[in-house]
């Protein structure tokens, strides 16, 4: 991720610094009009489909009626936000979103790092290639198909239900209808889908480690374990930090597409997250565009703040950051 890596050379047009902006821009436009023309369609695209919706956030301060449009709808100030904070589901949504997001951070995120370390330590190149190829496969299965498979495996007679019953004596039920199983199902299937794929980044960082570091460690009497702790992991830290920031930024965007395919009203108790609620209040039940937008707005702001803060922190602590 090189968000701000476009530092090439100082802009040569610095001789025009003293002139007012308008004049400079006119000159620039005359000189580079072809470049601007080329960017025009892209600019339009971003303004309409990325910034248009951002401008559309104003309807969260209105009682928006599609028939009246933004101009004709009544303004209600912060009402929808206050309503959301008083919503009987507010606590549940926040807790569920946090629970799923944190579980992903605690279980899915490190799983890929561990897998990369384990693959890296395999002695046979061939084994390591086979493991990699197999572990990437689930990434190519679409969310809908994945959820179809999950539904079958955890149904009353499903393979996973039976296996857990035989191994641990767990009750035979359709696990998707039990609130207690939702998060484990979500996390395990998330690991199944992504562990191999997410390990690629770490593997490529691992291959970049200077072998001499290991030789030096061996000379100093370091055993395998010491080498992993004192050489491999420190070399991985910058990559881990970058991936962690990206992950935290996406944290509140928990895979709502997957949740929507897996949850039922029976499991809302643990499965309903902010984004699924946004969808339901926007399209399915008790539809209210403005309210739903306000809830989504809240979510976006939390997301943005999270990336911002993590990025700041990581720059201070480890020197790696997104921008």
């Amino acid at each position: 991720m090189s968000i701000s890596a476009e530092k090439r050379a100082p802009v040569p047009a610095a001789q025009a610094r003293r002139k007012p902006f308008g004049a400079r821009f006119k000159r620039d436009l005359r000189k580079n009009w072809k470049l601007y023309l080329l960017f025009l369609p892209i600019l339009c695209y971003f303004l309409v489909f990325k910034y248009g919706p951002m401008a559309g956030l104003v309807i969260s301060f209105q009682n928006f009626k599609p028939a009246k449009g933004i101009g004709g709808s009544a303004w209600v100030g912060m009402k929808h936000f206050q309503d959301f904070f008083r919503d009987p589901y507010f606590r549940r949504l926040i807790v569920n979103t946090f629970r799923i997001a944190l579980s992903t951070l605690v279980f899915s995120f490190p799983s890929a790092i561990v897998l990369a370390l384990l693959i890296n330590e395999l002695r046979s190149k061939k084994t390591s290639r086979v493991v990699q190829t197999i572990s990437y496969v689930p990434h190519f299965i679409s969310t809908v198909v994945l959820c179809g498979i999950i539904r079958d495996l955890v149904s009353r007679t499903g393979g996973v239900t039976m296996l857990l019953h035989q191994l641990f004596g767990m009750p035979v039920t359709n696990m998707l209808y039990e609130p207690g199983y939702f998060v484990p199902i979500y996390i395990v299937s998330d690991i199944w889908t992504n562990i191999g794929w997410n390990s690629i980044v770490y593997l490529s960082a691992l291959t970049a480690i200077d072998q001499e570091l290991y030789e030096a460690a061996k000379v100093d009497g370091a055993n395998k374990w010491h080498q992993i702790i004192h050489v491999t992991i420190p070399c991985l830290v910058p990559t881990i930090v970058i991936m962690f920031i990206l992950k935290v930024g996406k944290m509140f965007d928990v895979g709502y597409e997957k949740i929507m395919l897996l949850y039922t009203p029976l499991t809302y108790e643990t499965a309903d997250v902010i984004n699924t609620y946004v969808y339901r209040r926007g399209f399915a039940e008790n539809v209210n565009y403005s309210y739903s937008t306000a809830v989504g707005f809240f979510n976006s702001v939390v997301c943005f703040t999270l990336v911002f803060v993590t990025n700041k922190l990581s720059r201070r602590l480890s020197g790696s950051s997104l921008w």
């Binding site: 309409v48 489909f49 248009g52 919706p53 951002m54 956030l57 309807i59 943005f304």
Partner: peptide, 12 residues
């Protein structure tokens, strides 16, 4: 890093 969210996108 920041988006308008589901409903505004739909409306656009």
């Amino acid at each position: 890093y920041f988006s308008g969210g589901m409903i505004p996108f739909f409306l656009v």
